[in-house]
């Protein structure tokens, strides 16, 4: 991984008194596939819109390719080099698929014609059909084709697989991995945590506009653990006020701990408390995501 291609520092967005994004600082490494996770209304779309110049930040700053996201002329250059697929994937209903492609292609000198042909075949998109007559899945496929073929250095995708069937989801995920292999950076938000877990190198978890977690996925899965313990006598939660423990659930004699690090220290502590049984289990990204939200 090299330096950050996309970087925000204390990026903030207020809608009146509501804080949609609060001092968000993140750095997306060049060539990575970064998953941007969060609940509905967590601030993902607002962040993406600020990055692409659709919204003005209330505070903080952001840079993509070293260019200032708030500077209109630099924002145009960002959009020349970055492709975006919005959450709702709305395209022009009055255009056919072919017109949509022709229109989008005209703005990108590096348009990948061979990829366009390949995706048209793979997605089986009817060129002469109006966008309004396409199914939701086909609309998503068209929006993805329009983004993928721009020859972009950075793909910013908001829920890219929404509305696709499992076969096409797999195709899209494979394509994303392929793009990353070619050097394209992929930054995508998704509610499908399994998809993020399948392809992402790095994960950002955001909640109520704040960054909760930012780490490489491998590192995260390596370090996070669930530790289940059983004791002879019931314990109290304060007995586990240790570094690395994100959440403790005490149920009589059973204690379940969700830990981000310091596993050894926690295990030593458990043995010191005379635990009769201790199980250390790996955790999925979904579990990390859910526990991170609960831990707040």
């Amino acid at each position: 991984m090299s330096s950050a291609i996309l970087e925000t520092v204390a990026l903030t967005k207020h809608y009146g008194r509501f804080e949609a994004v609060r001092e968000l600082s993140l750095a997306v490494p060049a060539g990575s596939i970064s998953g941007f996770l969060g609940q509905n209304g967590a601030g993902k779309s607002s962040t993406i819109k600020m990055l692409l110049g659709m919204m003005r930040p209330t505070g903080g700053s952001g840079r993509i390719f070293g260019l200032n996201i708030e500077e209109p002329s630099e924002s145009i250059e960002i959009r020349q080099r970055a492709a975006f697929v919005s959450e709702d994937k709305r395209l022009y209903d009055y255009m056919t698929v072919e017109q949509m492609i022709r229109f989008t292609r005209s703005f990108f000198p590096g348009w990948r014609g061979e990829l366009e042909q390949r995706l048209l075949r793979e997605f089986e998109l009817p060129l002469d059909r109006k966008i309004k007559k396409l199914s939701k899945g086909m609309r998503t496929q068209t929006a993805l084709l329009l983004a993928f073929c721009r020859g972009a250095e950075l793909l910013i995708l908001d829920e890219p697989t929404e509305g696709l069937d499992p076969v096409n989801i797999e195709k899209v995920l494979e394509l994303l991995v392929g793009f990353a292999a070619e050097g394209t950076t992929v930054f995508f938000s998704s509610h499908q945590i399994a998809e993020v877990e399948q392809i992402a190198d790095r994960v950002f978890i955001i909640d109520k506009g704040r960054l909760l977690l930012d780490a490489p996925l491998d590192e995260m899965k390596e370090e996070y653990r669930r530790i289940n313990m059983v004791f002879d006598t019931p314990l109290q939660t304060p007995a586990f006020a240790l570094e690395g423990i994100e959440r403790v659930r005490v149920d009589g004699r059973s204690v379940s701990i969700f830990a981000s690090h310091n596993i050894e220290g926690i295990l030593n502590h458990a043995h010191a408390l005379h635990a009769t049984s201790v199980d250390v289990l790996p955790v999925s990204l979904k579990e990390i995501f859910l526990e991170s939200l609960k831990a707040r």
Binding site: K49, L52, G53, M54, P72, S73, I76, E77, R79, Q80, A83, F84, S86, E87, D88, R90, L91, Y92, T104, F107, F108, A143, L146
Partner: peptide, 12 residues
């Protein structure tokens, strides 16, 4: 709902 598309293009 199409503003997201046009504003993602390199246009002022």
């Amino acid at each position: 709902g199409t503003a997201g598309f046009i504003l993602s293009l390199p246009l002022s």
